[in-house]
Design a protein around this nucleic acid. Structure first.
Lengths: 130, 130
DNA sequence: AAGAAAATAAGAATTATTCTCATTTTATTT
DNA sequence: AAATAAAATGAGAATAATTCTTATTTTCTT
């Protein structure tokens, strides 16, 4: 195996895993998702690398849902829906965040706005029916 | 002292405290704020009652900032700014959330939308200058 | 006033996350 | 390619926010 292929094998597996799911997983969920293909990646390494990617702006944190931090490989501002029943997190790509809100926020606060999160909460389809 | 005045003295003190601050405090911050006037309120009681108020929709949680849950007595949807430097949370009453976003979210998700949070992040004035 | 129900204090228990350090892997230099 | 330096990892200990347990106190109902 070439050197280039070996570089950061585990780190890349973690980022790839996050990029390939739409579940907005927690560290534990990433670890579980990787288990079949990479059973040798420890939970500490998942935590460490998620923090590493986050500090470099390569992924974003959605904050905690039910006390657990959730991550998203999509760093573009976009809208989420969090189900308060099953704690699923969905993207709502159909909902657009008006650009005016950001500038409005900056003017209103006198602060330097770097990021924005718009999250709706409620019950998802299956939780509403049970 | 009349019975009416004694009812839920501690519980009410906790809600009043949250209503009288704009700091969007954590449980520990509420406990500290209450210390001078109510040194006999334990931290467990603060946690318990914040959860009690929250479960009844009397207050809302803003989620966690720097790993600590923050609370707000204002349950109306409104916009927040979170400073990533000092972890202060500010209201941005000047920024309006378009009502269309909520309906748009409900249509897009097929879910029952119950709440909405719009949060901007960045550096507050004093953190930007240091 | 007596009994039932609810709230509380204190600290133990829980749990997500971070940290430590010895080891392994990867990169750099010779 | 060998030697050395730097970075990453595993395993489990440590941390810290939050929740839980239980005995006690306070409040409510009768």
């Amino acid at each position: 195996m070439e050197a280039a292929e070996k570089q950061f094998r585990k780190r890349n597996a973690i980022l790839d895993c996050l990029r390939q799911t739409h579940a907005h997983p927690s560290a534990e969920m990433v670890h579980a998702l990787l288990q079949p293909s990479h059973p040798d990646i420890s939970l500490a390494t998942v935590y460490r690398n998620l923090a590493w990617f986050k500090s470099r702006g390569m992924i974003q944190s959605l904050g905690t849902v039910n006390g657990v931090e959730r991550f998203d490989a999509d760093t573009q501002p976009h809208v989420h829906f969090v189900c308060t029943g099953c704690h699923a997190v969905l993207d709502l790509p159909q909902v657009e965040i008006p650009a005016s809100l950001g500038t409005s926020a900056e003017e209103a606060s006198g602060c330097r706005v770097r990021g924005c999160q718009l999250t709706f909460t409620g019950l998802c389809g299956s939780c509403a029916n049970s």
